[in-house]
Design a binder for these strands. Sequence first.
DNA 1: TTTGTATATTTGACCAACAAATAAAATAAT
DNA 2: ATTATTTTATTTGTTGGTCAAATATACAAA
Lengths: 248, 248
Amino acid sequence: MTQSIEIVRSILEKKNTMAAKKKGLKPLNSVSMTDRVENILRDYFQENAFKPGDSLPGELEIAEKLDVSRNVVREALSRLRMLGIIESRTRRGMIMARPDILGGLERVMNPFILGKDTLNDVFEMRLILEMGMAEFLFARKTAQDIEELEEIVASQTSIEEPTKEEEIRFHTKLYDMTGNETFTRFQILLLPVFEHVFKKYRKGKTNTPPPDHIHHDGLVKVLKTGTVNDFRNAMQTHLKPYFDVIDL
Amino acid sequence: MTQSIEIVRSILEKKNTMAAKKKGLKPLNSVSMTDRVENILRDYFQENAFKPGDSLPGELEIAEKLDVSRNVVREALSRLRMLGIIESRTRRGMIMARPDILGGLERVMNPFILGKDTLNDVFEMRLILEMGMAEFLFARKTAQDIEELEEIVASQTSIEEPTKEEEIRFHTKLYDMTGNETFTRFQILLLPVFEHVFKKYRKGKTNTPPPDHIHHDGLVKVLKTGTVNDFRNAMQTHLKPYFDVIDL
DNA sequence: TTTGTATATTTGACCAACAAATAAAATAAT
DNA sequence: ATTATTTTATTTGTTGGTCAAATATACAAA
């Protein structure tokens, strides 16, 4: 809300030079006008350190300075609005906003449209996250956390073979304990793809792998009394069925 | 390109029921029509397992069945096109496509507009990735990889204090060695924010931390002759300056 | 069968207009 | 003079229509 006027003025100058250089923005090789306007705006925001609250020129002003129609500008702004980069209310105009860093990821996390390689990558990334969180877990765990974990384990119908929901609940609690909300949300986004890929692997392989891994109660015990390295080893064993299907 | 006709037919039926239920889509509480159309389309793609190559109804058809203007539909489609969920060429119509899973993330990874908490989360996440990649590194490393790492280290002007570029080059090679392209690209996206946050931390703290950590040559040696746990411990020590600023 | 042509369709881009909301200005009331 | 109310003007949201460019499709010609 601060330096709005100077910002508006500077964006217009920039646009003038751009427009002048191109003598009227024209669609490029298979790149639509909307694509170009979107990129121009994002680049400009970044280069000039636009911050949430800063106000933007109106749609018409942008359209005129870029020498494109208001519709094209609106299509580009619609994209930025979806990502949360800008917000707009009638008459109040548009302002920069704080995007949800994972909003874009959430919209494409669909096992049916992602490529096979990408799906495998996601599967592996969740394993990497599980193995990498140990430091944070030990640095930030509390007695309360351990208690909750023990409750989760105690409520499980079978310690030998927890259901998918129980498995998820347990691991999500672990992520929570890192105190890193983005990290937690990130893994929740990965989960559906993780499950999807694992199912496919098990179909492809001969039999279902024997569940000879360390169970949740074991992990809690190590978390309670063991060391960081103990925990990592325990987690690696716990994840063995998943490492196995990718022959790691 | 396969079941296009049935898909078209079914999407239209769905839209009819939706439109009928709402008796003409109307803007909801601070939710634009474009938002709603975007969500309707994405939900529909997911629920009906749309795959890349499947063809979609035309803009006009969607607009009519949803009882909104073509402009609103185009703004929604513009968003999906940005994410890579759909592609469209004149007369050939629109088809489902393979989105870049990190495209949305790339567009919002801007230190100036993300919240302070989110920036901290990103900083921590990179540390988690570095600590979690050990299994993959040891499972997939090759002699060639080790050679390249040694070359990178040898080319460094000072082993004691590698430049930021040298540091990045070394670590990026490590990510490459995991064979996980998404993982590699992910960390490259995190890097600018990581550097940005680290700079802010160092300004806030008293002095620059003494560089008494394990250097790249040490990491390579462990990677060559040590165990996975050796490497993790070495990496933890190598990252100590970063763990220190967050008091971990 | 192959090639070339005409037609029709679909997306890309533009323009004009109005509705809804509200900031700003003008006016009225105290 | 200050406050409250009304009016005005501006900005985004949404609609409708038009035109251009590209290209499937059908058809005609070789």
